[in-house]
Design a protein around this nucleic acid. Structure first.
Lengths: 80, 80
DNA sequence: ATCCATTTGTTCGTATGTATT
DNA sequence: GAATACATACGAACAAATGGA
């Protein structure tokens, strides 16, 4: 899965979609760590700001939480 | 019991939790010595700085006291 | 008293990772 | 993208207290 820079949907929303899918399908289970922001930068070739914007979306959806100095963690892999 | 390095909770807090439980359950009674910092390093595979940080937490909770050159001691095994 | 081993206390440097501006 | 701040962890070094031989 990659980002379509020419698409209508903003890249940060595309990234949020991709990560949301990984979480909701259980590909990354609750409590597990997500790739670091730097790894996401490389994987999707997006700037840090864009990564952060996507993560903010997932945080607002209560799907992930961030732990300063530790990483990104899946909060709810399924709706409950 | 061991430390989950991938967990959301920082290792030093996990260690504090583990030791707090051992104390509060009476597994290590009041006045008894805890394993030395070096032994804790080996048991949990953490650096001494991290061990120390966990001990600082328990000291702040008045659960243990440290004696330079002697070791770590349980102050209150139960709430009183 | 001297020496040595053990243990805690403290500090510095380095690395990683997130948050903020 | 860049710079700065903060949180966490590791490693290393040295000091100081203690206790045994």
């Amino acid at each position: 899965m990659s980002i379509d820079r020419e698409g209508v949907r903003a890249p940060y929303l595309q990234l949020a979609d991709i990560l949301r899918t990984r979480i909701q399908t259980g590909e990354i289970p609750t409590g597990r760590k997500l790739p670091s922001q730097m790894e996401l930068e490389q994987e999707f070739d997006l700037s840090r700001n864009t990564i952060k914007k996507a993560l903010d979306v997932l945080k607002a959806e209560d799907l992930i939480e961030t732990a300063p100095g530790r990483g990104l963690f899946v909060k709810n892999s399924k709706a409950e």
